[in-house]
Amino acid sequence: MWSGVLPAVTSKFKEDGSLDHDEMTRCFGLQMDAGCDGLIVCGSLGEGPMMTLDERIAVMRTAKAVSGGKPVLMTVAAASTRESCEIAQRAATAGADGLMVVPSLVYQTNDAETVATLRAVAEAGDLPIMIYSNKIAYRVDVTPALMEELASDKRFVAIKESSDDIRRTTEIFNRLGDRYAVLTGVDNLAYEALAVGAVGWVAGLVCAFPKETVAIYRLMKEGRNAEALALYRWFRSLLDLDVSTYLVQNIKLAEALAIGSNERVRAPRQPLSGETRKRVESIIRAAMEVRPALPAFG
């Protein structure tokens, strides 16, 4: 459950702004067909904070219907601990297999507050948890020291490592051994993280390029690093689109061009326009023009 390629899927909307479950079913199915190992719903890329709790649960249920028994994780990301606990409770009742938990979405918690919040969510949901450590986006750093403090609670099983510092992955292993499953959460550091021991990839561009993402992961696990690196170098310009304020719009544009989906987003976001759109579209189209054939892998 805590290894492999886990897409942080986008959420799909109709023209009137309501959830498009038919399109999510199609797009989530493409992830499963490509060999992804589960689905993570309603994160930053999935625009979870722009949804009501009922909508988040509905997206999760759609993912569960498509996943074929593979794990579906609900993202817990809210301004208050109270709301985070409510999300965790509702997700557990609705059948989530686990949670990916952002310690604090708005307020920059100190170490004691971070630990207290994570423990409260664990108690509320009573599900396996992947701690989302992303000091860049959320300004809260779940350090190896805090991971060690939480290690006595077996519900904390994995780390989505998104500090943007590749040294952090090795620091986690050196301090905590194999206590946690470490997954990389930064698309354009994925090869590097897998090379130093990460066991999974919480991926973004996988939404538009699932087969290539799975191929890189599987090749790395088979020790075929040179083949994985060649594919990763082709992919790199696309993966950079994940590390952006506009990652949602970037990836939805990639989905529109690569898998025929749409670019609809929840306000205040708007689809890319003007020179920014031209630049991103040119990156995507240029990569697609030289899209490599994929090697066979196990």
Rank of each mutant, 00 (worst) to 15 (best):
G125A: 02
R285P: 00
A258H: 00
G69E: 14
S261H: 05
V202D: 01
A215H: 01
D126V: 01
S18A: 11
T276I: 14
D164P: 00
V101F: 08
D126S: 12
N250H: 11
I166T: 04
S3P: 00
D240Q: 10
G274W: 09
L118M: 07
K211P: 10
V76F: 07
E15I: 09
S273D: 15
T276H: 10
T93W: 04
G48C: 07
G200D: 01
R26T: 15
L30G: 09
G38N: 06
L257Y: 00
L231G: 12
G46R: 05
D242R: 01
G17Q: 10
I259T: 13
I172Q: 06
R277A: 11
L19G: 11
A112L: 08
L219Q: 02
L194P: 02
E275V: 14
A92N: 08
M130T: 15
A195W: 00
S18R: 04
L183V: 09
P71W: 02
A181F: 11
K160W: 06
R61A: 10
P295A: 04
D54Q: 08
W201H: 10
E123T: 13
G29A: 07
V5T: 04
D16M: 03
M60D: 02
V290W: 01
F297G: 00
G274C: 07
S133T: 13
A88L: 11
Q89G: 05
M288E: 11
A145F: 12
D242K: 01
F297W: 09
A151Q: 11
I172H: 06
R61Q: 14
L241E: 00
P144T: 14
K252I: 12
Y232L: 03
V265P: 07
V202Y: 05
R168M: 12
D20V: 13
A79T: 13
G298Y: 07
S44R: 01
S273Y: 05
A226Y: 07
R82A: 13
L176W: 06
L45G: 01
I283C: 01
L150H: 02
D37Y: 08
S261T: 14
A77I: 12
N225E: 14
D126I: 02
V142N: 02
L73S: 06
E255L: 08
E148H: 11
V41Y: 14
D111I: 11
A88E: 02
Y107H: 13
L53Q: 13
D164K: 08
V76E: 05
A65S: 14
F235P: 01
N225D: 05
F297D: 08
M24I: 12
R56W: 02
I251L: 01
S80A: 08
V265R: 00
T75K: 09
V280A: 09
P295S: 04
S44A: 09
A94Y: 03
M1P: 07
R82K: 14
P103C: 11
R291S: 11
A124I: 06
A79I: 13
Q31F: 06
V101S: 10
V243Y: 03
A77Q: 09
M130V: 12
T25Y: 04
L146E: 15
Y246M: 12
I40V: 15
G185S: 02
D141P: 01
R139A: 15
A124R: 04
M147P: 05
Y246A: 14
W2F: 14
A96L: 04
M60A: 09
A195Q: 06
P268E: 03
V157I: 15
K160L: 07
Y132G: 03
D37I: 07
Q89Y: 12
